[in-house]
Design a protein around this nucleic acid. Structure first.
Lengths: 119, 119
DNA sequence: TTTACATATGAATACTTGTTCATATGTTCT
DNA sequence: AGAACATATGAACAAGTATTCATATGTAAA
């Protein structure tokens, strides 16, 4: 009952590929976290400025403390940032080296597309 | 009228950072494209299998031709894939080397988190 | 223990987005 | 020209999500 959409008589009919949907789902969820301007801004700020407290992030970005806190939770859950408490203040920093790497590659890509970088 | 949220008396009050919001918005839009399971599956399939036509992508993933076509448009608009017409058939492939790079780094990240890879 | 500060969170709302269904476009073959 | 095939697209609906507002938690100082 394999419902073929096309007749399969194409010149280029590639070898069967069996996608690992679990992996791909996790992967899309991972990238989804980068795909919001507030969250990528938080990542950017932590990437540039290193460890920073919530209110300084909010102040730097001009976004409400509540909104930042909500997004930090998502970033925390995804293990992209990690908190460190010092008294009343909680400092956040990037958790994983992959985060910086992906941020940088993505940035290079859009700078390249804008012609602001030669590569 | 610089409404400070915190009093700024923290031990670690970092140097002023001025985010480039235009860049960050573009960057988030870029990552947003990766952040959908259908689109990342398309990217995955093209990454593994190289150039492939629409109906083979749909067939491989078990997703309707219409849904694939809609998502291909988004990928095309973001310049992540490029089409090549051959008669009735349109073959798609990954457009930019950055796409593969980001896909691979992201995959490594989640495999690492799952403990399926040592790094 | 009150008061003030830093952060987190629940509920509600407004907005975005992915899929389906039906149909349109464009190509090839007869 | 007409039929069949491959892909694209518009409209509608459902589902997800980011922000705001109000408030709660937790910590430190008075």
């Amino acid at each position: 009952m394999d419902k073929k959409i096309c007749d399969g008589n194409h010149e280029h009919c590639p070898a069967k590929i069996t996608p690992d949907y679990d992996r791909l789902y996790d992967l899309s969820e991972f990238f989804k976290v980068f795909g919001d301007s507030t969250r990528i801004s938080i990542i950017s700020v932590l990437h540039e400025g290193g460890e920073m407290c919530v209110c300084d992030i909010a102040d730097t970005l001009g976004i409400s403390q509540s909104a930042i806190s909500h997004q930090l939770r998502i970033l925390r859950t995804a293990a992209l940032v990690k908190p460190r408490r010092d008294g009343k203040t909680i400092y956040y920093s990037l958790d994983d080296e992959h985060v910086s790497e992906i941020y940088e590659v993505g940035l290079q890509h859009i700078l390249h597309k804008r012609g602001e970088i030669e590569l």
